[in-house]
Design a protein around this nucleic acid. Structure first.
Lengths: 211, 211
DNA sequence: GGATGTGAATGCATTCACAGCA
DNA sequence: TGCTGTGAATGCATTCACATCC
């Protein structure tokens, strides 16, 4: 098997990989052992050819006449995505979003673990948020080293988001999931992904109007 | 100005429209009156040509030699996206995510208002969630009519998500924002958008590993 | 000079369609 | 027969480059 050269793989294909994995985990829970590209694609509204081509970028996982073995493919995809081990994740922001995320039970099975929660608000520092004691932002650097964290979730107000992002990046964080409704600037070697619920509703509003 | 024919507009362009709008609202708060395609694009890491082409799909908003007038363009984009009026939104799921969303202050200014919260859990129905009294799912139909709601947010566990989605769609909801980590099936004339935090972390893990 | 809007050229991603294997 | 993997063909989206206007 050839090594992965991510620069030669379409970005959309990488994004779909996560959806395939999620789908496979669901069908595995239903006891299915094997699945064809057509079946894997249909609930995601993708063609069989799309599914096969996406997977083929990363290796030869299928069996002609059979399809893909669910368990094998799950293991392969986890390996490719890097979630065959657990990633320690820092969470900054102990507001409503931070609270929801800190108590989200689904992370562990997907290879992620929130290991510390931070906030700048003195009225929150030292308080408990679920199982975590909220720590001041000044301890981020220490926590990055302590936990070997490379990922962080940003759930602070829009005004602070860029500042906090800079701190996290300065402390060695390499991937950032941003819940603040602003576009963050970051060096090329730091990955940033974003969740903006208002933006998503806006897209739905447009589609509902015109489709 | 020609009418919008959404089928002739690249989907990515529509998605970027929301980002332009968010960016414009930010620079307006800073007091800027005018902005060039280059400036509008740079914090979003887009080329000036990309910005101009995207906007030109919807009309001629710019002024040669000047750029775009921030206030005008904001009004135009809101009109295009349909958020020059307020959309009433139903929220299903009174757990942690539902709680965070029901109290999110940012919706109003973007043209959205959560108007009712639902849950099936008898221990939650009748209880308060922020300003809302949690109502049983059976009242969804009534609420759709009462509020003229066409959008809903789904923040229920993965197992119920498809069932609840079917109820919402049956009651007349046309756009769905899904926080459950499953892929929903819906008729072609219902728009579905999704937030899956684990999937996004997975993508970051991949990028951090290979980029 | 400084900016837009836009055809034409390029570059990506998806789909087709089929050889080949179980 | 049933399904994968994959070049070739197609279809979209982005970028270029320039005529045009303030």
């Amino acid at each position: 098997m050839e090594p992965i050269r991510p620069e030669s793989i379409p970005n959309p294909a990488v994004r779909r990989l996560s959806l395939y994995l999620r789908q496979l985990e669901a069908v595995q829970r239903k006891g299915r052992r094997t699945i064809s590209s057509k079946q894997l694609g249909e609930s995601l509204r993708l063609t069989d050819a799309q599914v096969r081509k996406d997977l083929a970028y990363f290796g030869q996982f299928g069996h002609p006449g059979i399809g893909y073995r669910v368990e094998d493919l799950i293991l392969q995809l986890r390996k490719i995505l890097g979630t065959d081990r657990t990633w320690n994740v820092l969470l900054v922001g102990a507001g409503n979003v931070g609270k929801a995320l800190s108590s989200y039970r689904g992370f562990r099975a997907k290879g992620f673990q929130v290991v510390a929660v931070f906030d700048n608000d003195p009225s929150k520092v030292g308080r408990k948020l679920g199982a975590f004691t909220v720590r001041p932002l000044g301890e981020i650097q220490k926590a990055v080293e302590e936990f070997g964290a490379r990922l962080a979730i940003l759930a602070v107000p829009a005004d602070n988001a860029q500042d906090v992002a800079d701190q996290l990046i300065g402390a060695g964080i390499r991937g950032l999931l941003n819940f603040a409704p602003v576009s963050l600037s970051a060096p090329r070697d730091v990955a940033v992904s974003a969740v903006d619920v208002a933006v998503q509703l806006e897209q739905l509003a447009f589609q509902v109007t015109f489709l």
